[in-house]
């Protein structure tokens, strides 16, 4: 079966006055129906821009300069604005990071939900309201009729994110892009939201791209993960395999710096240095300057290889068991 979404060689660059910023540089991945893909990386690694590119929502001066975004067998790059509009919210929906900011403060919840229904379907307002009500129930919001008449500021952060998710679910999209939707929430709410999203995707067969910097979130949620660094995917594979046996030194560093994995009393492991500026990346492998395994080979950009079946890595010196010194 064809994947729901296939991204091939995506490049999204920002043409700033200081130079061309390659936020996303040659990114490829695909996601099957009903599966969850975790897109992991530090701030500025290009994961959010990847998400916005798939939705055709890159703000100027940014632009998708190359690559193909094939959604349900149809290439989305080069669509007109109106064609994009028809896809957004109906076929591909998005949930944003900060629930305090994603709902318009001066419009009631019902207005914001009903307009979403009416943007894609010619139904009566009553029908649209019923849909909105149903979606709120689905995400576990009590007394939806009352809540529909409320304004966003009358909701807590967790509730707002539920509303945002309900809005994303209104048209039963084939794909939801969730851009760190639980980062701004406290841990108990995070758990609830994760659980519900997972359940909803399973029930409706929706594919999910979950963008996060938090490996522990992805561990329990995703089927497959892509690790991004400086605009490129450096490692890709099934979630358990990648977490148990990371191939790329960067992935290894990321996993090592999760606090729960460290023994109490010991120093936390950290990756030395900091993310390079996307404006002047070092030539060759972008992680070279922080990498314990770097050598002269790394001065040339490594290609994606598949050292093990189902595992892809962009590195000359992956941590394969047989090569560990």
């Amino acid at each position: 079966m064809a994947p729901t979404l296939e991204v091939r060689g995506l490049r999204t660059h920002f043409f700033t006055k200081a130079g061309v910023l390659k936020a996303v540089d040659d990114v490829s991945f695909s996601i099957e129906k009903g599966k969850v893909l975790g897109l992991v990386g530090e701030s500025g690694s290009g994961k959010s821009v990847t998400g916005f590119s798939v939705l055709g929502l890159v703000d100027p001066p940014g632009r998708v300069v190359d690559g193909e975004i094939i959604f349900q067998g149809r290439n989305l790059t080069g669509l007109s604005e109106e064609e994009w509009r028809k896809i957004r919210g109906r076929d591909i929906a998005m949930v944003f990071q900060d629930p305090m900011m994603t709902l318009n403060p001066v419009l009631r919840i019902d207005t914001q939900m009903i307009e979403t229904v009416l943007a894609h379907e010619k139904v009566s307002e009553q029908a649209a309201r019923a849909r909105a009500r149903e979606a709120l129930t689905q995400v576990g919001i009590p007394s939806p009729d009352e809540r529909l008449k409320a304004y966003p500021h009358q909701f807590s952060g967790g509730m707002r994110q539920r509303v945002a998710i309900a809005i994303a679910l209104l048209h039963r999209p084939a794909l939801i892009i969730a851009d760190e939707p639980t980062t701004a929430l406290d841990v108990t709410i995070q758990g609830q939201i994760l659980y519900e999203v997972q359940k909803l995707c399973r029930d409706t067969g929706t594919s999910l791209i979950w963008i996060t910097h938090d490996l522990s979130v992805v561990a329990g949620l995703a089927d497959e993960i892509c690790v991004m660094y400086a605009g490129r995917i450096v490692e890709r594979g099934p979630v358990d395999a990648v977490l148990d046996e990371p191939l790329h030194p960067y992935t290894r560093g990321l996993i090592g710096s999760v606090p729960s994995r460290n023994v109490r009393g010991h120093k936390l492991m950290q990756i030395p240095g900091m993310t390079p500026s996307l404006l002047n990346l070092p030539p060759g492998c972008a992680f070279r300057t922080r990498c314990p395994r770097a050598d002269d080979d790394c001065l040339v950009e490594p290609a994606i290889t598949e050292p093990k079946p189902g595992r892809e890595v962009r590195c000359y010196h992956p941590h394969l068991l047989d090569t560990v010194a």
């Binding site: 028809k86 957004r88 919210g89 929906a93 944003f96 709902l103 419009l107 307009e115 894609h120 945002a164």
Partner: peptide
């Protein structure tokens, strides 16, 4: 964000400008 979210919902540009922004 709410303007971007409004676009992500697939609203027409005029609705985004004249309702979400203008209000």
């Amino acid at each position: 964000d709410y303007v971007k979210f409004a676009r992500a919902k697939g609203l027409s540009e005029s609705r985004v400008i004249f309702v979400h922004v203008l209000k």
